[in-house]
Design a protein around this nucleic acid. Structure first.
Lengths: 98, 98
DNA sequence: ATAATTTGGTTTATAAAATAAACTACTCTA
DNA sequence: TAGAGTAGTTTATTTTATAAACCAAATTAT
């Protein structure tokens, strides 16, 4: 009846990050921080989890002397997002008869 | 950009319970347990939280000598669910341009 | 009659998650 | 060169979710 919700994506911040990365393909740490309104610490932790899950790739480099963290969604991340949305829909259109 | 997700509803089990109650209006503890696949302990805790939030009403009575817990969604619960779905939609159709 | 099992839960304890606070390392500005 | 800012990470705290243990009464089996 109800499909299980991927715990990696069932987090407001991680879901927001994945949602952003699906539309922009690549984003800087600071961009994600600004768009999501998250604190840097929380974002850092959640990006690490998304990376560990293989949902995003993280490339660290330097730009104008400053560290720069770039994030990109992976195929696995896109698939997981699509599955998550499908699963959510089983909760959103209530129907007791199945 | 992203709307906040009501933490009361952002729980797989509580969301499933509210989803069920919206379609059936009133349900027994055991029905909810069976439909959600939750353990009794977990369900008991989560029903308590939904009640504390004012999203459901719980009436305890006896039926055929056994205790019977009946749950009903409240207006507040219906409203919260609708808001939650709206908020989720801001995550589901990715659009970086706002 | 009484022991074991089942029903319908609640309470307590443990594990996992989210969040906040503190810290690191470096850079820029006055 | 002291102070503030950038770009994060790490650690600690709080909150959640889940599981395990427990409870009271009813039923069934012996």
């Amino acid at each position: 009846m109800f499909k299980a919700l991927d715990p990696i994506l069932h987090s407001q911040l991680r879901l927001a990050v994945v949602s952003l990365l699906i539309s922009v393909k690549e984003a800087e740490f600071t961009y994600l921080k600004e768009k999501t309104g998250a604190t840097a610490g929380n974002l850092s932790v959640q990006l690490g989890k998304l990376k560990d899950a293989g949902y995003i790739d993280i490339h660290k480099q330097f730009k104008d002397n400053y560290p720069l963290t770039l994030c990109k969604i992976t195929k696995k991340g896109v698939d997981a997002f699509e599955q998550y949305v499908k699963a959510l829909q089983t909760y959103m259109k209530p129907d007791a008869t199945e």
